[in-house]
């Protein structure tokens, strides 16, 4: 997921739209994004993207910490899976709050 859609998502949200490059600058205007996030598919896509990115990253950082000598304990779990869980909950609450 991160490998397939990550690059294009970063390009669209972080570079193309803010700079008005290739895409119209109003591509992410409030009404458009609201409609996207209220649409069932759009909502699902955003949630799956955030969920997979943060858990994938959390899992890998957890193991990398072990590799550089910070061994698997409560602290490193909170820092990785904990953050992933918090981000997931925030994203879910925000998405649900936007209504359908």
């Amino acid at each position: 997921m991160a490998a397939l859609f990550g690059p294009i998502m970063v390009f669209i949200t972080g570079i193309a739209v803010p700079l008005g490059l290739l895409l119209p600058a109003d591509a992410m205007s409030y009404p458009k994004m609201l409609a996207f996030a209220q649409n069932f598919i759009g909502k699902g896509f955003i949630f799956v993207a955030v969920f997979l990115f943060i858990w994938h990253a959390g899992h890998r950082i957890f193991h990398s910490l072990h590799e550089v000598g910070i061994h698997q304990g409560i602290g490193s779990k909170l820092l990785t899976y904990g953050v992933a869980a918090v981000v997931t909950v925030i994203a879910a609450v925000a998405l649900l709050g936007l209504g359908f």
């Binding site: 970063v10 996030a37 955003i46 990115f53 943060i54 890998r60 709050g97």
Partner: peptide, 23 residues
């Protein structure tokens, strides 16, 4: 390449922040 996971996490947080602002 394992380190790139930090950037993936950063992007997920940026997106989530955007979602909160949208709501």
């Amino acid at each position: 390449h394992e380190g790139t996971a930090l950037f993936v996490a950063a992007y997920a947080i940026v997106l989530t922040f955007g979602l909160v602002r949208l709501s």
